[in-house]
Amino acid sequence: MAPALEVRDVVKRYGDKEVLAGVSLTVEDGEFVSLIGPSGSGKSTLLKVIGGLEPAEQGEIRIDGRRAEGRRGLIAYMPQQASLLPWRTVAGNIELALGIAGVPRGEAKRLAREWLGRVGLADYADAWPHTLSGGMQQRVSFIRALLSPQKLMCLDEPFGALDALTRQHMQEWLLSMWEANRRAVLLVTHSIEEALLLSDRIVVLSARPASVLRELAVPFGRPRSAKLWKTPEFAELRDAIYDLLKPAAAGGSDGA
């Protein structure tokens, strides 16, 4: 079976500035992969290339085995801001995203209600998004991506805008949601702990121009819980990744 996502030797330049210097990674079906790197390393650029918004100068993108360069709508997507349209109800927002992904209207309506109920937001189905807290909005944003029929989900620093406490709750919530509904996930994050807690594999990017510094498998079994944080193995792995991401180890910021 073809991997959900295959990125091979992708090079991306803005003018004469190289942002991605030959990045390769794969996400297998049902696998949770985190992409971690210093801020400004080109993680979001890579997502835009995968999403078909930005062309790459070189390299290949395959989604579910098919060439996907410059093609949009092949991924389910959860952005950093919840990005709910303020003039649509919570359920209406989910229905719109599913509609764009090609889910029939009746089916989209049913799915939205059912899943809002499952994540404890049944009472908010007809509410305007601004009446929800940041964490609740991100839960809506997540199930909107989860319900989209595409095989691959891309999460772009989904909890980056939340406060520390909400962020931790959301990570645990996402962990349990994902373990119950395994999908191919590519998570972009700059939190080492978040990557370790959630992923099967972690891809560490260098500073700009980005290349893959290292790929490591996360050895913890599933189901996991937040207790993982306290184990010595967790601390060891965290320190190892932290060392990789140190500015000295990553080299200068600019220059090809």
């Binding site: 709508g73 801001q81 990005s83 992904a101």
Partner: peptide, 24 residues
Amino acid sequence: ALRGYLAMIGADRWTIFAKLELPN
């Protein structure tokens, strides 16, 4: 952010006009 999100999930020009720009 909304524009970027809709583009990312594959909304076409018309959908972006009808669902984002017009209501906005």
